[in-house]
Amino acid sequence: MTSKATVSTAAMVKREPATTPDANIPRAARRSRNQFFAFRGTLSRRAQILTSICASLFVIAAWELSTRLGWINSLFLPPPSVTVETLWTMITQKHLLWNAGVSTLRVWVAFALSVVMAIPIGIAMSSFRGVGAALEPIVDFIRYLPVPALVPLSIIWFGVGETTKIFLLWLGTFFQLVLLVADDMRRVPQEYVEIAYTVGARPFQMLKDVAFRAMLPNLFDNLRITLGWCWTYLIIAEIVAADNGLGFVIWAARRYMNTSEVMAGVVTIGLIGLLTDQILRLIHKRYFRYL
């Protein structure tokens, strides 16, 4: 009930700010309080950032307290303070940044390979019935294979070098991505395609100038999400066969029950993910300003 009333009030306020009925409470204050939990309500940029920071701080504080108060043995869950300390010594003494760089490079190379292959194949799958019919069963089959199950085969095929790692990452993302791309293309309104044809575009011009351009914002979003999955497979690949990279660092630390180093490694991955995602979001906002 309340949320419904809030939404309608907000809509009214937007349209004609002068004629709000009520009230004893200042309008701005009431609005901001209600908007916080209003379904699809609006929240100022500053309030959003503040909320994000507060929530994160809360989680970190709860984590710190849970070991400080002895609820959890710090050997199993090192508190943030210890993790940060370890992070620092690992950066200064154990080449953590170099290992992170190696991992990031692997992710990007494999991901780039996936993208370069998935975009044309996905577009072809959704644009041409024949290609779709031929590839869909194969893609669906491989898509459901768990990547870890293919690690032994991959090692037999490619040994324990970089090829295996790139292959496993590619395997984990390409088949997912190809379907996402096909779906993005399918969702391009038929009207756009027909506009192109009725102003004299050839099929390739239609694809390049209209269909691809129309799917780009969704495609970008899907790439951003899929990139995150790469990290999952990377750690598996690096645990199994590597002598560098974050997965190796984490796995090596585990061997000595060095949980704070494990945690520091995990946190590094999280931080890289957070940073990448924010940068990609920023690019999205810049580049697709018309949305």
Binding site: P189, E191, E194, I195, T198, G200, L216
Partner: peptide, 17 residues
């Protein structure tokens, strides 16, 4: 289709980008 016959649709009638 060719450009001697132009189409105006009800929706998606222009490119948002």
């Amino acid at each position: 289709p060719d450009r001697d016959r132009g189409m105006v649709f009800q929706s998606y009638s222009s490119f948002p980008w």
